[in-house]
Design a protein around this nucleic acid. Structure first.
Lengths: 178, 178
DNA sequence: CAATTTCTTGTACAAATGTACCAGAAGTTT
DNA sequence: AAACTTCTGGTACATTTGTACAAGAAATTG
């Protein structure tokens, strides 16, 4: 029931493999076999650490969310340029990963157990916007707008440059705090 | 190559069936067989009208987006209450359908051919917010915030009552136009 | 070092899947 | 009504799938 260090390492290697498969082929490409192949381990190893496909998805979502939260957490205060760079990186440079993460979120939507992860995401976003939480309402509205902007970037492919993204973010913050 | 009236009817029945399967079982539940069964037609009929699974998804997205756009289009101007009701209906009463539609959107993200549908969605949303397009910037920011709010409702399950949703929408519009 | 747990890996199998094919029915057009 | 297209629905098949099992290697524990 407990994991040895080596076991833990292989488990994490498999989770990383899930994210890569997800990025490359989408949710429907994730199978025990494809993940095992991506990680370079036998099939039975994937089923040993993740008995069902469900386990695979749930654990992968946890990992992806944690990585995403860390991205925003490392950001300095009021660093709109840095913020725009993170958004650009996420929506364009790692577009596949971003789409994959949303796919996971929607796959997880039918599961109450994963609500905590969704809350963590919103918490990280709001913290990046207003670390001191001085204006709760304004912060919440801004977070929604940023979230919507991210979605728009993924769907329409614009704004597409760091400069345009920064402008859009300024548009949001100034429209809301004006 | 052209469809007879009867053929067109069956084609649409199949598309409706896709949306129902999607709502019930998610994207992974959509197969030629499950859709055919849901529509009460033989399997070969599903493959006749939609040669590949891809055709099925693309056509279903078109249909779902059109229905969604129509929902917003029927709305009166400055009817925040009505707007909140539409949002509540969509995110709670028909939560499965809403999730399904987003799933389709993300499935479609890797296809340029479907960008037009995404644009139609944004167009409808912005039109519902500001029919006369008097304040383009403000309207765009508001649309993003509303979009983010919708996502939040689906992920966190709140705000959950029509009243709370209307309050959240007012929060957005007043924060932005203030 | 013996006992016990954790891990590895090959193998097996029923079920489900995408897709193709075909013979004939129903419909449309000339 | 003849010629043609569209549609129907049954059937077949190679692949891929999730999942299970078992026997042994490796690691951990007492």
């Amino acid at each position: 029931m407990t994991l040895t260090p080596k076991g833990e390492a292989r488990r994490e290697a498999l989770l990383d493999a899930v994210l890569r498969v997800l990025e490359r082929d989408g949710a429907s490409g994730v199978t025990h076999r494809s993940v095992a192949a991506e990680a370079g381990v036998p099939v039975a190893s994937a089923t040993y650490y993740f008995a069902t496909l469900d386990d695979l998805f749930v654990s992968a979502l946890r990992r992806a969310t944690q990585q995403q939260v860390a991205l925003f957490a490392d950001l300095g205060e009021h660093d709109l340029r840095g913020f725009a760079e993170v958004m650009h990186d996420w929506a364009f440079t790692h577009r596949g990963a971003a789409i994959a993460q949303y796919e996971l979120m929607f796959l997880a939507m039918r599961r109450d157990a994963l609500r905590a992860d969704a809350e963590a995401w919103y918490g990280a976003l709001e913290h990046a916007i207003d670390p001191e939480r001085l204006h709760p309402v304004r912060t919440r509205v801004t977070a929604h707008a940023i979230d919507g902007l991210l979605l728009r970037m993924l769907w329409l492919g614009e704004p597409s440059t760091v400069g345009e993204i920064e402008a859009a973010v300024r548009e949001i913050t100034s429209a809301i705090s004006a």
